[in-house]
């Protein structure tokens, strides 16, 4: 059965990701008093991009053409590994938080190369900023993984889900700190406000948009889809580690799967609304303050580990 659920999960990731982005945009529009596009608008955008003619820069190499496919497939693979509605998946033995970080890091690497490939100045600016954010976010992410592995004794998300559902952690301070740190990292990695504004094309502030400025047609569709899938991945990751209630474990049968799917839908919707409200309430940050923001995430994760040692010494 695990293969069936794995395929279902992989399809679900791609099918739900544009909806998640659409809901976030819709919530943000409503909160600032606009009517907002329908939540299914991102699907229409992707289909439109897929139909459009591909325009390639003269200096574009094979790397530029290959990058969208690599980025999308790496992100998709990572998203398929996070247990969303069941832990009974085919890829679970390979799924590991460190693997996830590595897959996303590889995707970012190719995107950065593609940003530099054409040789425009915007691509270069975007790439250098993206790499700066990545180099700050990754230590924080690994520190969070470290804290979780000390708490649950494993770095596999599925085993962490089992551990939390069995009540092995309880009310733990370190878990709360790790949650805040992971939210900060997720905001930075997905280029949301206050790090990067996904809706802007202002040359002074854009990060992700600057990197993919030269893409068009189906390449752009793939890259947009990849960033949507990455947002879904982080929401699923937060949901599965910190709120695993409802996730079906192996041996629970079809009813368990249905409960898992329903709770997953509810968590995603909640995450989308929360993100929309958060982004409306906060202003974008100056580039030079990124280090403070992500340094805060790193320090929270370090603090979580330190506090853990206090309570384990008891």
């Amino acid at each position: 059965m695990s293969a069936v659920w794995q395929i279902l999960q992989a399809l679900l990731c791609v099918a739900l990701a544009p909806l998640l982005t659409g809901i976030v945009r819709w919530v943000k529009a409503r909160l600032v008093g606009r009517r907002g596009a329908s939540p299914i608008q991102p699907y229409r955008d992707l289909i439109r991009l897929l139909r459009k003619e591909l325009v390639l820069a003269q200096d574009a190499s094979w790397l530029f053409r290959a990058a969208p496919y690599l980025v999308f497939s790496l992100t998709w693979l990572a998203a398929a590994m996070v247990p969303a509605f069941t832990t009974n998946l085919l890829l679970i033995p390979a799924a590991d938080l460190i693997t996830l970080v590595a897959l996303l890091g590889a995707a970012r690497f190719f995107l950065a190369l593609a940003g530099l490939d054409v040789g425009t100045s915007f691509g270069g600016i975007g790439t250098s900023r993206e790499m700066m954010i990545a180099s700050l976010a990754e230590p924080a992410m690994l520190m969070i993984v470290f804290t979780l592995s000390l708490l649950a004794g494993t770095t596999a998300p599925a085993r962490i889900v089992d551990h939390v559902l069995a009540g092995g952690i309880g009310l733990e301070v370190s878990m709360g700190m790790a949650l805040i740190a992971l939210i900060l990292v997720a905001i930075a990695e997905n280029g949301r406000i206050p790090i990067d504004n996904p809706a802007t094309h202002l040359e002074l502030t854009m990060v992700h948009e600057a990197m993919v400025l030269e893409y068009s047609g189906r390449h752009l569709a793939l890259i947009e889809a990849a960033s949507m899938v990455r947002l879904l991945l982080y929401v699923s990751l937060l949901a599965c580690i910190f709120a695993p209630w409802g996730i079906s474990q192996s041996g629970k049968g079809e009813i368990g799967i249905l409960i898992g799917l329903a709770s997953y839908g509810a968590k995603i919707a909640l995450g989308a609304v929360a993100l929309g409200v958060f982004e409306t309430a906060i202003a974008k940050m100056r580039v030079f303050r990124y280090a403070d923001f992500l340094g805060g995430a790193l320090l929270l994760a370090v603090l979580a580990t330190i506090v853990l040692y206090v309570s384990e010494a008891v």
């Binding site: 309880g170 009310l171 301070v173 709360g176 805060g296 320090l299 603090l303 309570s311």
Partner: peptide, 25 residues
């Protein structure tokens, strides 16, 4: 670990975190 203990720990850590928040602002 009982609930009394965990909750006291949690609130204490919250005060500490807000101390960091003060440093950050």
């Amino acid at each position: 670990m009982n609930f009394h203990y965990s909750a006291a720990h949690l609130i204490g850590a919250l005060v500490l975190l807000l101390g960091f928040q003060l440093l950050y602002q």
